[in-house]
Design a protein around this nucleic acid. Structure first.
Length: 686
DNA sequence: CAGTGAGCGAGCTTCCGCTTGACTT
């Protein structure tokens, strides 16, 4: 009886039901071998080798040392099943670079002579049967690309992290993904810290038609009124911009000028609007939407989604593809027809393509699995129900008609002052009847029927001063989307990268937003000075291109690794400054100094060790003297918490050995010699 | 003389990506 091996046990069960009793289907649970993670992982015979800890013999053509990392029992089970199948084994790991590598490692570990590799894009009976009829050999060039990726990440991570141990002190870490991700957040923090707000005025009036509507001043004597967009981040007018700027006195004058004055409608522009439904969810868009709409953090969403997947209610949760299988398209369309009638359906099913250049599209979109149960029929509750409802409505809405409407832009003239108003009206609700993700514009309103030349008096004129705001902080969900857009990390690692940054105390969550800590800022800016290539997301983009070239056979693995390691990263690490850095605090007259992982703030007036809960944004004219005097106290709102999420789920998580929480980590940085528990090592087999 | 504490030295920390349970409190 032939044996089929897939990565996920859930998938194995599903496929077994398609193939019946003629097949054995087993799961390997992801990668089965890897470079040694700890000293205990190194086999006896390699213990004395200088490179054993790294796991790569660079001088021998970057030869990797692979050790078993499968969960207890998995390999013995697979070996027994291989024997029972008489070596008739099909390797059906995911159809991407990592999946090809897993297939190759399995072929080695199981001693398969000529391994049969099969792939499919969707888990349906016909797709599986078709795949089994077309086995192929393992693509060794693709395996070489994966191995190059693995080796580069180990060399970079284990090469640069010790720099931080010397310069920063404590159990710090750096890597191709985490350091580039940290830099993205640090840049945003820097631009916020150095942002200088600009003041501008917004003047609105009620136009006395029946019913009345709101208009706002656009220009005075044809000179546009300044808005937030007129200014640079340094608080200066942008070059070449000519605008009218008000102050309190002028604004009051304008208010008096307009109050009671007749305005004439000088133009009415109507333009049609069409809104397409958003595509079905990928890992990142699900995180974004669940964060924005349900206020759930990345870890909560991952946990709830994994549970839904295990209950057979949704498809695989780590995917970069928004595509739906034919089966899913039909089920979604049937759900639309049942709820809203045939008219709500577009003539043809909508298929969505990824816009992400790095996407590997080994899986479908995240969507309801099986029978597309309506949310109320699932028997779920709490976060799981909310998340399932979100996934269900987004999937079904993706197969509904566009929303149609019109946007009306009104221009009015009152003496020398030009005013404007806009309104949108939907003529066909389309998908918004089920799933509406429109951001409401503050100016948008329902407008009465109007004609050009019509006159009406202005009343209730209001003038209010506004301030331009710094670029917004990222939420957990938007950070995941940022990583995807920057091309760093994969759907299976977005959550764990964030967890690493939180665990290292480089990043903190306050009021559901991500903040870079003083330590994180020091690490990012130190790396930027010493190894700018590592913190640049383009490093990964270039790597992806080179890995593709290796997979195509155009580039040799050895040539690639020599180029990025021997000729670039290695000499850069050797030349880097290993002494404690002084980091200028952006936008403040102060520097950070770091010793033993502890940040000290130094100004012309003195120095103070920063309390753990202090964030860069807390540093201002009032807090800095208080810090130096030792009288600084965290305000109530600045109490650092991991999340605004439900306590019951957060509390047990903090106690689990494998989880790193900011709080726990801070305790261990206080005694840096104590061994901190790290995730992932405990389950490795020695 | 026993207990304490300062000072010294050795050993350790670390990556990314693929997958889920098995731990303890």
């Amino acid at each position: 009886m032939p044996l089929l091996i897939v990565e996920s046990p859930k998938k194995a069960k599903q496929i077994a039901s398609y193939l019946g009793r003629d097949w054995t289907v087993k799961a390997c649970f992801g990668h089965v071998r890897d470079l040694p993670a700890t000293k205990a992982d190194i086999p006896e015979k390699y213990r004395d080798q200088a490179w054993a800890r790294l796991g790569i013999n660079v001088d021998a053509g970057y030869a990797p040392l692979y050790v078993s990392r499968a969960r207890t029992g998995v390999l013995t089970d697979l070996r027994a099943a291989t024997k029972a199948a008489g070596g008739d084994v099909y390797l059906a790991s995911d159809p991407d670079r990592e999946g090809e590598s897993i297939a190759w490692h399995l072929s080695v570990v199981l001693g398969l002579k000529d391994a049969r590799r099969v792939t499919y894009q969707e888990v349906t009976k016909t797709a599986i049967q078709k795949a089994l009829q077309n086995p192929r050999p393992i693509n060794l060039a693709l395996v070489a690309a994966q191995e190059s990726r693995r080796i580069l990440d180990r060399l970079a991570g284990y090469g640069v992290s010790p720099l931080l141990w010397d310069a920063i002190g404590g159990p710090q870490s750096a890597g191709r993904v985490q350091s580039a991700a940290l830099m993205l957040l640090a840049q945003r923090e820097q631009s916020r810290l150095s942002f200088i707000p600009s003041a501008y005025w917004r003047v609105t009036a009620s136009v006395g038609t029946t019913p009345p509507f709101q208009a706002s001043v656009q220009a005075i004597r044809s000179l546009p009124l300044a808005t937030a967009a007129s200014f640079t981040a340094q608080g200066q007018l942008k070059e070449g911009v000519e605008v009218a700027q008000l102050d309190a006195q002028k604004a009051e004058g304008l208010r008096g000028y307009l109050e009671g004055r007749d305005a004439e409608i000088t133009s009415i522009e109507v333009s049609p609007i069409t809104r397409r439904p958003p595509p079905p969810f990928t890992t990142s868009s699900l995180q974004q939407a669940a964060g924005a709409r349900l206020h759930l953090g990345v870890e909560t969403v991952t946990r709830a989604a994994q549970s839904l997947y295990e209950q057979g209610l949704i498809t695989y949760i780590r995917t970069d593809s928004p595509a739906l299988s034919d089966e899913a398209l039909q089920l979604a369309r049937a759900a639309v027809a049942e709820r809203f009638g045939e008219d709500a359906l577009p003539p043809n099913p909508r298929q969505y393509a990824t816009r992400n250049a790095n996407a590997q599209e080994a899986h479908e979109a995240i969507r309801p699995a099986g029978a597309f149960l309506a949310p109320e029929a699932t028997g779920l509750n709490g976060d799981e129900l909310a998340l399932y409802t979100l996934i269900y409505t987004r999937t079904v809405a993706s197969q509904m008609q566009d929303a149609l409407g019109e946007k009306t832009t009104i221009t009015l003239q009152a003496g020398v002052v030009t005013l404007g108003a806009t309104g949108t009206r939907l003529t066909q609700r389309g998908f918004t009847a089920l799933y509406d993700d429109d951001q409401k514009d503050e100016d948008d309103q329902a407008l009465p029927a109007l004609t050009t030349g019509q006159r009406a008096p202005l009343s209730k004129v209001k003038a209010e001063e506004k301030k331009s705001s710094a670029p917004a902080r990222f939420s957990e969900g938007s950070f995941v989307q940022l990583m995807e857009k920057a091309g760093i990390g994969r759907p299976s690692t977005y959550a764990s990268t964030l967890k690493t940054l939180l665990g290292r105390n480089y990043v903190a969550i306050r009021a559901r937003k991500l903040h870079v800590t003083p330590l994180g800022l020091c690490v990012a800016l130190y790396l930027l000075q010493q190894l700018p290539q590592l913190v640049d997301a383009r490093f990964t983009a270039q790597m992806e291109q080179d890995l593709d070239a290796i997979a195509n056979g155009e580039l040799k693995r050895l040539d690639y690794l020599d180029r990025v390691w021997r000729d670039a990263l290695k000499p850069a690490i050797a030349g880097a400054q290993r002494t404690s850095p002084r980091i200028k605090v952006p936008g403040r007259e102060a520097v950070f100094e770091v010793r033993d992982g502890q940040v000290t703030l130094r100004t012309a007036d003195g120095a103070a060790l920063l309390p753990a809960e202090l964030l860069p944004e807390d540093l201002d004219e009032r807090s800095i003297p208080a810090l130096l005097a030792g009288t600084w106290k965290p305000s109530v709102k600045s109490t650092r918490r991991t999340d605004g999420e439900t306590a019951p789920s957060a509390a047990p998580a903090a106690k689990r050995k494998s989880s790193i929480t900011p709080r726990k980590k801070r305790e261990s940085t206080a005694s840096p010699r104590k061994k901190a528990s790290t995730s992932g090592t405990s389950r490795r087999k020695a």
